[in-house]
């Protein structure tokens, strides 16, 4: 989707907050829980100056990025191999089809037992979740490579390995980046889920869970949630922008969500 004009979209966001404010001040919803933005935003500003909160945010974002990086390092080569060697793909696809549907959050209890509550747990789980979109996008992109591109390269005496790096990889790159964009959201969600469940872990999820207990600090819950949304929004927009900037030559892979 194209980004709408900035003024209109800002007006839209302002309206969202106005409706939220009005709903919270009227008796339509329990105002104790849905704190109005006029309370939530000052709380967010206060929290951003709080080192404990900042440490939690940094821990979450760092784990997300680390997991995403590891997932790329595993999934891109794996996707290239599976995409270019049909026998390997046939042989391993059954295992992949068996593993992929297992929601990574279902592995949280197991991971906590085996890895403990440290950052390893959330990073491992997030890698598992973030792997699939990148792997499948890389693999499918290789299926879609124009055979004429390969023939052209081969006619100029390009060897098999060189065709993989000089033709297959660049033409798959936009789809890989789309996979990375989808995986960021998954990685962030899995990291936060793990933090929600594993009491001892430092992170945004843990902070919000603690703030929510008993419903005493709902402004902090909402502030943290809004911040997480902003992080996701910024990452998504940033990667979309990167896509447009780097792959200006490509239009077909642009609209992938």
């Amino acid at each position: 989707m194209r980004t709408p004009r900035v003024p209109a979209s800002l007006t839209g966001l302002a309206c969202l907050f106005a409706v939220w404010e009005a709903a919270s001040r009227s008796d339509l919803v329990p105002a104790h829980y849905l704190r109005p933005p006029s309370v939530v935003f000052p709380t967010l500003v206060r929290l951003l100056g709080d080192p404990v909160f900042l440490r939690a945010v940094v821990a979450t974002v760092a784990a997300t990025l680390l997991a995403l990086g590891i997932a790329v390092l595993i999934a891109v080569p794996a996707g290239l191999v599976l995409g270019s060697f049909p026998p390997v793909r046939r042989a391993t696809m059954t295992i992949v089809e068996f593993l992929r549907p297992i929601p990574s959050v279902a592995l949280i209890p197991l991971a906590l037992l085996t890895f403990g509550t440290g950052p390893d747990t959330k990073v491992t789980l997030a890698v598992y979740g973030a792997l699939w979109p990148i792997l499948f996008n890389t693999m499918y992109a290789l299926d879609e490579i124009d055979p004429l591109h390969v023939e052209t390269a081969r006619a100029f005496g390009t060897g098999r390995l060189a065709v993989l790096t000089r033709v297959a990889l660049p033409s798959a790159a936009p789809f890989v980046l789309t996979g990375v964009r989808l995986s960021f959201a998954i990685s962030l969600a899995v990291v936060i889920s793990t933090e929600l469940f594993a009491g001892g872990a430092i992170g945004l999820g843990q902070f919000i869970l603690a703030a929510s207990s008993g419903g005493a600090h709902m402004d902090e819950v909402l502030a943290g949630t809004v911040l997480a949304g902003l992080i996701g929004f910024a990452a998504n927009s940033g990667l979309e922008w990167l896509h447009r900037a780097v792959f200006a030559w490509n239009v077909s892979a642009d609209g992938l969500r």
Partner: peptide, 23 residues
């Protein structure tokens, strides 16, 4: 007007909704 609102809503990591709704 609404595109950015929807995209923002989608960007909230869904598991974070749990503490809010639990409370």
């Amino acid at each position: 007007y609404l595109g950015a609102v929807f995209t923002f809503m989608r960007s909230i990591p869904p598991p974070l909704l749990v503490p809010f709704f639990v409370a």
